[in-house]
Amino acid sequence: MSTPTLDKHSAALDAAENGAAHLIKVTFRIRRFNPEVSEDASWQDFELEIDPKERVLDALHKIKWDQDGTLTFRRSCAHGICGSDAMRINGKNRLACKTLIKDINPQKPITVEAIKGLTVLKDLVVDMDPFFQAYRDVMPFLITKGNEPTRERRQSAEDRERFDDTTKCILCAACTSSCPVFWNDGQYFGPAAIVNAHRFIFDSRDEGGEQRLEILNDKDGVWRCRTTFNCTDACPRGIEVTKAIQEVKRALITRRF
């Protein structure tokens, strides 16, 4: 038995199946900072030979493992699902594990630095506590009143779809740390917290919408957003962050959600 798909291979599949590594020379220009050594941050270049089909995270590992064990960054899952390794790569917020070297012009030095707006603690590691605090402040949990049903709460597939986009958030902070409003004023909740509020406000099972909207109506809440779309561009999960913020603003005006 054969299938049409296997008879004609696409060029992309042929390329994907070509296991032979073809190494190229790449320069990584990394923003280093370690207050145990010096109060000042500085750029350091590392050269390595690497297959451009590999991830930026693979390159950082190669540097750490073969050249300089002091290079410090967070990572865990290595495939874009845990949210550990948001960083500024060539000036844009991305996950190192979801960015392939070939896609970011490896002919020129690739710059890597910590995300902005959060205090840098060492190299690419920032203080995430303010970020998680803003998240906790929007009451990111289902609020219900009355007795619990014995079985599951019913929800139509349509109602479930309504907030699907914002359930994808992995709390990587790529959006919040790309937001010029947040850079200027760390008190602003930032897009990620609003995304997570949205996830509940538009969940048909939730009854805490009013409380959450009050919190977001605060002076550091949604009205600070100036719709620059940086967050949407930065989101590695493809969430329409700006749209979610707009929907929360509209809900505040109409009190309908």
Binding site: E148, R153, R154, S156, A157, R160, D203
Partner: peptide, 18 residues
């Protein structure tokens, strides 16, 4: 599973909402 749903987990739904 029912506990998780009550805690808020957004499971995919059948046409009748279960």
């Amino acid at each position: 599973v029912l506990d998780l749903e009550k805690m808020g987990l957004p499971f995919n739904r059948t046409p009748d909402g279960t």
